[in-house]
Design a binder for these strands. Structure first.
Length: 492
RNA sequence: GGGCCGGUAGCUCAGUGGUAGAGCACCUGACUUUUAAUCAGAGGGUCGCGGGUUCGAUCCCCGCCCGGCUCACCA
């Protein structure tokens, strides 16, 4: 390791501890109390007075005077001030605290509890020890660590110094627990399906490729769990869900990370309206778990998850924003002509379905601030969704939107193996025509459908994006502990 | 991929075609109730990387790397 000056100073202190017969990295701590319990029971413990031992990281500046010193220690449950008197700990340890210990070292302190004259709850230390010497120095104590790249590359440091970052990930865990509770309460079984897949499917996306050496087999990292989960509904489970990482080999921006967390669930004998009620219940529970109420504030806008979401057919939504009725403009030529006639600034797409989607993304999606369901997507865009009985050009599919961002996608699942085969074949033609995200043919999945998939409702929800909304973080990297960063060689 | 902005001490940031700056941190010394402690003093740099122009480049030019915002892409 090459050490800079500050690291070398700390390494030298570490060696001085060793020379004094002290282990700078002892095997274990002998603490008796967490700081949270000390603070909760402070008055009782202080009156006794009980001798107790706490442990944690020295944070903030140490304030060291000739015969007395103050420092704050943080152990993940709370922060406690140490009051260190030369008279109490002895000349040797007082000097050692001053000369050989540093901010960020992890220490253990034994003593009794009292309040200082200023009223701050403190441990009046009788003895100290080192649990782990920190070789790296802390960032600047007032401005802290603000460089976004460094915060994400060194998330461990970000978590130490930026307290609100920890709360975001605590909120994430709390929200996912709430999600599991809702799903479990509805009888969904949590399952695990393959990450390494010989055929990828369940979404329109480009995959990551990998290779199994012994089998000599090319494999893909999953882009969705959908097709495996529906095989399990064929197998007879009444409902299944999986919360899993998906991998999509696509662009990276503030709402896309190459690996992201998705919850997918499937309910036998349900349909997409069942899934709408489930989305409402899930978001309400997750919102309450995070904010304590059924509302969340995102970038100054209050979102209400306590009410039923508006259900807006895509056709009507597009008509409202553009004046065009895609129900009557049913060919690509007619649609393109109408775009031109109405001077709508939309990129031209090669198929009717993609053009509709582009129109929607440009004119409708940004307007969907409050939680909203958009219903009934063109069949071309939805190769796994069942057609509407009264309008076979559209499917029983919805996407859940909030703050202009797609949070979820659901449909009444296509269970006709012959229709599914035709959809796969159409996707194959799209792929051959240059659509790198078109769905692959999956013969085994067709075989499963040929045993009979009951009418089923299915749902996928992007956990990361939900957490962006609930924690008011406009960048997905702020809700992913270790977001993908380009490799860098000059620094760790 | 395009546009705009950025990369200077451990961190947060100034700055200039002529020996590289501040605050905090760190180091030395003083100090027995601090709360961004205070006071005095000292040290610390591949100015992202490579090339070019120049007597001289951290600064100007070109290329590249990394990042931020944004547009495009990602149903």
């Amino acid at each position: 390791m090459e050490l800079n000056d500050l690291q070398a100073q700390r390494a030298a202190k570490l060696e001085r501890l060793r020379a004094a017969g002290l282990d700078p990295f002892p095997t274990r701590s002998t603490r008796t109390h967490t700081i949270a319990t000390v603070l909760t029971d402070f008055d009782t413990l202080a009156v006794a007075p009980t001798t107790l031992t706490i442990a944690g990281r020295v944070i903030g500046a140490r304030r060291i005077m000739g015969k007395i010193a103050f420092a704050h220690v943080e152990d993940g449950t709370g922060t406690l001030q140490l009051w260190i008197s030369r008279a109490d700990v002895g000349d040797e340890w007082f000097a050692r605290f001053r000369d050989d210990l540093d901010t960020f070292d992890i220490v253990q302190a034994t003593g009794t509890l009292r309040r200082t004259k200023a009223g701050e709850a403190s441990l009046f230390v009788s003895s100290l020890s080192v649990l782990a010497k920190a070789v790296n120095p802390p960032p600047e104590k007032w401005a802290g660590l603000t460089d976004v790249e460094e915060r994400h590359r060194q998330r461990y440091l970000d978590l130490i110094v930026n307290a609100e970052v920890r709360t975001v990930f605590q909120a994430r865990a709390t929200a996912i627990s709430a999600m599991r509770r809702v799903l479990d309460s509805h009888g969904f079984l949590e399952v695990e399906t393959p990450v390494l897949q010989p055929i990828y499917g369940g979404a329109a996306a480009r995959p990551f490729l990998t290779y199994h050496n012994t089998l000599g087999q090319q494999l893909y990292l999953r882009i969705a769990t959908e097709l495996y989960l529906k095989r399990l509904i064929v197998g007879g489970f009444p409902g299944v869900y999986e919360i899993s990482k998906n991998f999509r080999n696509e662009g990276v921006d503030r709402s896309h990370n190459p690996e992201f967390t998705m919850m997918e669930c499937y309910q036998a004998y349900g349909d997409y309206t069942t899934m709408m009620r489930l989305v409402e219940e899930l978001l309400r529970a997750m919102c309450v778990a995070v904010t304590g109420t059924t509302t969340a504030t995102y970038q100054g806008q209050t979102l209400d998850f306590g009410v039923a979401w508006p259900r807006l057919p895509m056709r009507a939504a597009i008509a409202a924003q553009t004046g065009l009725d895609i129900g009557t403009l049913s060919t690509l030529e007619a649609l393109h002509a109408a775009l031109t006639a109405n001077a709508l600034k939309v990129e031209r797409k090669p198929t009717w379905g993609k053009q509709v989607d582009e129109l929607f993304s440009t004119y409708v999606q940004p307007t969907l601030v409050q939680p909203t369901f958009i219903l009934d997507y063109p069949v071309e865009l939805s190769p796994l969704a069942k057609r509407k009985p009264d309008d076979p050009a559209f499917t029983e599919r919805f996407e859940a939107f909030a703050v202009g961002m797609e949070l979820g996608n659901a449909f009444t699942e296509l269970n006709d193996p012959f229709d599914q085969e035709q959809r796969f074949l159409a996707q194959g033609r799209d792929f051959a025509a240059g659509d790198a995200e078109a769905h692959q043919m999956d013969v085994d999945y067709l075989n499963a459908l040929m045993y009979g998939l009951p009418p089923t409702g299915g749902l996928g929800m992007g956990i990361d994006r939900i957490m962006m909304v609930l924690t008011d973080r406009p960048n997905i990297r702020e809700v992913i502990l270790f977001p993908h960063m380009r490799q860098r060689e000059d620094k760790p």
